[in-house]
Write a protein that binds this DNA or RNA. Structure first.
Lengths: 224, 224
DNA sequence: CTACGTATTAACTAGTTAGTTAAGTACAGC
DNA sequence: GCTGTACTTAACTAACTAGTTAATACGTAG
């Protein structure tokens, strides 16, 4: 899995033109890209439909045409965030690795793609401010469960079979531990830097934090 | 340190009365309590000054009288959140404990008071959505650095002197690791439950997560 | 008791907001 | 070419929002 192949939404370059070309998919995607950025930067309540519209190549009317409401637009952005994260995690490949190597690989790849999608991390954080009430309305919610949980379960099972891993935690616990570290680094970045004068996303610290995460999970699982 | 002595802000019982009793401190505190709850539940952009006023025993005018603006009110709530967390951490007592016991104690006490102050955790999260731009205006910002960092440094130094702890991480790294776990449990609670059907704040899991945190930090620091 | 400053209540307001109405037009099918 | 529909632009709107103005009155000093 190559993190660089999963880019943040980038609004396409504006092409000034007087003619009106109809392209429903492009218009819809343009709105969704802009909205994702705007919601992740301003939050759900703080983002403005007028502002989103102004940053697209179309008008506010089309937002309602395609998405019906501000909430639906936000929900569409949120669903896409989850789907993209899940799609990338489906490509986690730990085949042929021992349990120790596999868990470290998985932790590091999780770290990588969290880092590649700060907008999506922030969207999840914002959705928690709203008590997950929007995602609760998503018809795709049942499919959002993390496929990496199955991979994790298999690694844990394998590690225990070899007498290497502790057996008082489940795959979801380990997933939580890894996610907490990766999410915190993005989600709490600004206050952390303001108070401690250390930007956790500064490239100078990247390798250190990446290793720290792998060590943390591995040391925990292999402790006696 | 007793977690139950640090309560969340609770608006005082309403006393219906036609007379107008002046008590500036009480009015100010009432506003701040209500605002803290409202901002932590709705976010900065989502909270409404009218709504905050309606939930106090006074009128919107007094919010502007005492706090001048919505932003100043939010900032006052935020500063108070930090000060309360810091005050409680100043009472962390690990005197007389060996490094291993001290680190576990500290991790667990951090866990406890994060759990006791969900509103404050959420306020910090919300402030990160806004890029820490409000707290940057706080005149008390220089005093918000975490006093527990000094305690942590001393524990690490002691653990290394006894040849028990690794030496490739600093006190801030360990603080980050502990905070990530404790913050995630509150800040991401809702989406986590929606997707994985596990409420991380459910009392049934409390002991498990508390032990998990202590083990995680200790196993990491003592790993060879 | 009076005066004054501070605290408080009540009503008002200009600008903003999510959403709506109306009109225009591209495009495919016939 | 005509028609109908989906896509698009432009303008409008009722309700909401943070903040303001005006009036009232409490509490204390003299």
């Amino acid at each position: 899995m190559d993190p660089s192949s999963f880019d943040e939404p980038q609004p396409e370059a504006v092409t000034p033109t007087a003619e009106r070309v109809r392209d429903a998919d492009r218009t819809r995607a343009d709105i969704l890209d802009v909205a994702t950025t705007e919601f992740s930067e301003q939050g759900y309540a703080g983002a403005r439909v007028d502002e989103i519209a102004a940053k697209t190549r179309t008008t506010k009317r089309m937002i309602y045409y395609y998405f019906q409401s501000k909430e639906n637009l936000y929900l569409a952005a949120l669903e896409r965030a989850y789907e993209m994260i899940r799609a990338s995690e489906r490509e986690v490949d730990v085949q042929g690795l021992g349990p120790r190597e596999a868990i470290r690989r998985l932790a590091e790849l999780t770290f990588d793609h969290h880092e590649s999608h700060p907008h999506f991390i922030r969207l999840v954080t914002i959705e928690n401010i709203h008590g997950a009430k929007h995602i609760a309305k998503s018809e795709s919610l049942p499919g959002l469960a993390d496929p990496v949980l199955e991979v994790l379960s298999e690694i844990l099972r394998s590690g225990r079979a070899e007498g290497e891993f502790r057996d008082d935690v489940d795959a979801l616990d380990v997933h939580m531990m890894i996610s907490a570290f990766c999410v915190f680094r993005t989600a709490n970045r600004h206050t952390f830097k303001a108070i401690f004068d250390r930007d956790m996303l500064d490239p100078r610290y990247r390798a250190h934090y990446r290793t720290m995460l792998g060590d943390m999970v591995l040391d925990y699982l292999t402790a006696r």
